[in-house]
């Protein structure tokens, strides 16, 4: 295996995913296959190849610094599960 079950559990936790034992088994296996497949690239000599920062070979796409109206708060909050005083309401954060 090129990825351990503990690593899969860790990544799942970071992504807020919860699996059953069978799913863990299945995803570990699938991830292992993906990593092995990508590992094939290591067979290539890339010494003289620049790392790819972006797949499209363009750069410097900019916007001018001009203010445009923002969106109506009514609309902004339309999809919020909970709202209060013009704010999105989320479960309490304890620091």
């Amino acid at each position: 295996m090129s990825i351990t079950k503990d690593e899969v559990i860790h990544v799942a936790k970071l992504a807020r995913l919860k699996f059953t034992d069978e799913e863990l088994e299945m995803y570990s296996h699938q991830l292992d296959n993906i990593i092995k497949y990508v590992d094939k690239l290591n067979e290539l000599n890339t010494d003289d190849v620049e790392p790819t920062a972006h797949i499209v070979p363009i750069s410097n796409v900019f916007r001018e610094d001009e203010v445009m109206p923002s969106m109506d708060r009514e609309k902004i909050l339309m999809n919020a599960k909970e709202k209060e005083d013009g704010c999105f309401k989320v479960p309490k954060i304890i620091e």
């Binding site: 610094d65 001009e66 203010v67 445009m68 923002s70 969106m71 708060r73 902004i76 005083d85």
Partner: peptide, 24 residues
């Protein structure tokens, strides 16, 4: 000190009623 945000044209003005300087 830009007038607009880094990736959209919403104003960066300080203060303002909550969620009035936001867009998709």
């Amino acid at each position: 000190l830009t007038k607009t945000k880094i990736f959209c044209s919403c104003t960066t003005e300080f203060g303002g009623e909550p969620n009035t300087h936001v867009c998709p």
